[in-house]
Amino acid sequence: MREEKRGGWSLGLAGLLAPAALWLGLFFLAPLLLILAYSFGTSGVYGGITLGFNPANYLKVFDPLYLEIVVRTLVIAVANTLLCLLIGYPLAYFIAFRGGRWKSTLILLVMIPFWTSLLLRAYAWVVILSGNGLANRLLQFLGLTDEPLNLIFTTKAVMMGMVYSYLPFMILPLYAALEKFDVRLKEAAHDLGAGRWSTFWRVTFPLSMPGVIAGSILVFIPSAGEFVIPNLLGGARTVMMGNLIQQQFLNARDWAFGSALAVMLAALLLAAILFYVRRVGAEKLEGV
């Protein structure tokens, strides 16, 4: 009887997992394997690709021109993650410990940007930072500048747009981790003579590491693959790997090199995340 029950449970579990496995297989694993196969192919002169084994696509990534874009992408992604952490942690801390009856309202305000498209939010920054935009008008009204400043199509503009877009991805995991925090631990630390900063660095921050790790991963991964914000706010001056991959597929029609870039980006992200988790400690991901 138990064997039949176990078999029934196994069959039922397989039935539940089958739709998700089929979906992931068709729309995640199959395209990933196709891109991997394309990365070793040879692109035609007028588009198209011939499958084979051509590792030169990967060696081309180490050209100084493309290597500069890879380094720039990683630097911007790391900087965006750090800025989101520096801005998001105090806000999440305030909502968790000082929000009171306004917690739900404040979390709702954090989530409001999700109600609109990323493309619309990026275009809003174009309006704000353009030569005749709100930022330049305000600076001239306050008498800080006599003529419009070059605020758009710069790395700073890209950083502002990315921090604005991905800040909620940092705040929400941090809030979830801090909300579970036992306030009695802070009281015990104070009773033992620890000051506010000592309590924060030795008690609060270590116990909020699950939120820090989750938020960092949620911000770093899409930041490294971002192409909409750099395209609108950075232009040709701030090309990232996402823009380069897009150009190779749509403009240059070099599908093989574009696929190699995509595989390299995925490998770099995976290596960076594994290194980060191993350094911090995988056990701290529990409860995220």
Rank of each mutant, 00 (worst) to 15 (best):
Leu129Phe: 09
Val75Lys: 15
Leu109Lys: 06
Leu261Asn: 05
Ala135Val: 03
Trp125Thr: 10
Ser43Pro: 06
Leu138Asp: 00
Arg121Thr: 05
Lys186Trp: 08
Val78Phe: 11
Tyr175Trp: 13
Arg2Ala: 11
Glu3Lys: 15
Phe27Pro: 01
Tyr89Trp: 11
Ile128Ser: 06
Thr73Ala: 06
Lys5Gln: 14
Leu185Lys: 02
Met111Ala: 10
Ile229Met: 07
Val163Trp: 02
Phe62Ile: 11
Leu65Asn: 07
Leu82Tyr: 10
Phe205Ala: 14
Arg101Gln: 12
Thr145Asn: 11
Ala77Thr: 09
Val239Ser: 03
Ala37Gly: 13
Ala157Lys: 03
Phe227Val: 10
Arg98Cys: 12
Pro148Thr: 05
Leu29Trp: 13
Phe220Thr: 12
Asn243His: 06
Arg196Ser: 14
Gly48Ser: 12
Pro31Trp: 01
Gly131Lys: 12
Pro55Cys: 03
Trp255Ile: 10
Phe94Val: 14
Gly8Asn: 10
Gly41Glu: 07
Leu149His: 01
Arg196Cys: 04
Gly161Tyr: 01
Ile49Val: 15
Ala224Ile: 09
Trp9Ile: 14
Ala267Glu: 02
Lys186Met: 15
Ala252Ile: 13
Leu118Gln: 13
Asn243Thr: 14
Leu138Pro: 00
Leu134Gly: 05
Ala56Cys: 00
Tyr166Asn: 07
Val288Asp: 06
Leu138Ala: 12
Leu134Pro: 02
Ala194Phe: 06
Gly215Asn: 08
